[in-house]
Computed example of a mutant assay.
Amino acid sequence: MITGTSKNLGVIGYPIIHSLSPAMQNSAIDAAGLDAVYIAMEVSPEELTAAVKGLRATGFIGWNVTIPHKTAIIPLLDEVDENARAIGAVNTVVNKGGKLIGYNTDIIGFCDGLHEKGVSLQGKPAVVLGAGGAARAVLQGLMLEGAASITIGVRNPQKAASITKDMPLKVPVQIVEWDSESMKTALNEAALLVNTTPLGMAPKTDGIPPVDWDVLSPSAFVYDIIYTPAETRFLKEAKSHGHDTQNGVPMLVGQGAAALSMWLDTNPDRTAMRNALEAALLAKEKTQA
């Protein structure tokens, strides 16, 4: 029951109507018996400054940030965590007594997806497909996991060059064309292949980034951060070539659990969160069918 003492949480974005975070986060809040509520709030880019002031003034203890506000919100905050600053994006805000601090829990969520499958990258090379905002969180996560080197495969390396200029890099990172010989060499040596592009995401499920599966290392683990559909064409192709795989569900649950832990000082029930998320995804797929 929502009362006058309930702690307020939420997610801001534009548009926000299709967000699955409320179902996932409220399931964990209910499982823990906490007096809190998590809601989705549509905030246009023009209203972001006013919205942040309002959330601070009304005592929201925290909120998630999604497209298109992850970068734009940074100058509106009092402090930004080192990892969020490194990738230039905030997805979680914590209100500590009126002081707004930005974090990026997408990094934690991505790493959770690796840990769930027992994947260790210490001293091993990785390949990332795409160089957008999601790729930056993945890149930071790979460096934290101890990857020896990272190859970023894209359509146009010149357009993607800013990712290596903006981020403090702790390991060798190269940007190459998807169909280049350098890409084939990287795939042959890769311990991990990650898709961070939207290719294959519902409703355009036929999309797939170009990968020469014949040259990819047979032992490479394949990770797609897309979670709808649960199994993209990219992951189906990987499985058909004998690779172990992971989709984006653990990343979404992991980033949400990390945020909830920051806000409410609790250890969220990840099983409840995952069950609620998968039920919401199934319902969403049925409506799109």
Rank of each mutant, 00 (worst) to 15 (best):
T71D: 13
Y38I: 11
E82H: 04
I39W: 08
V43C: 04
N91T: 08
A84M: 11
H18A: 14
S19Q: 13
W63H: 12
A40M: 03
I12Y: 00
I107G: 04
V65D: 05
T58F: 14
L34A: 07
V43M: 12
Q25V: 08
L77Y: 03
N95K: 02
G118N: 12
V52N: 08
A57Y: 10
I16F: 11
T71P: 02
C111V: 15
L76F: 09
R85F: 03
E82G: 00
N83Q: 14
M41E: 14
K117T: 08
C111H: 00
S27Q: 15
A89P: 01
D78G: 15
V37I: 10
I74R: 05
T3I: 14
S27A: 15
L9H: 10
I73M: 07
S27M: 04
H69C: 06
T71S: 04
I29C: 02
N83A: 09
D106N: 07
T92Q: 05
G118Q: 00
V11I: 15
I107M: 06
I67A: 14
I101Q: 02
G10F: 11
V37A: 06
G33W: 03
H115S: 14
I74T: 03
G109N: 03
K70V: 13
K7R: 14
G54H: 10
R56T: 05
K99I: 00
A32T: 01
P68G: 13
H69R: 14
V43F: 14
I16H: 06
I17D: 11
I108P: 00
G88W: 07
A89G: 08
K96Q: 12
D112Q: 06
P45L: 03
V52D: 13
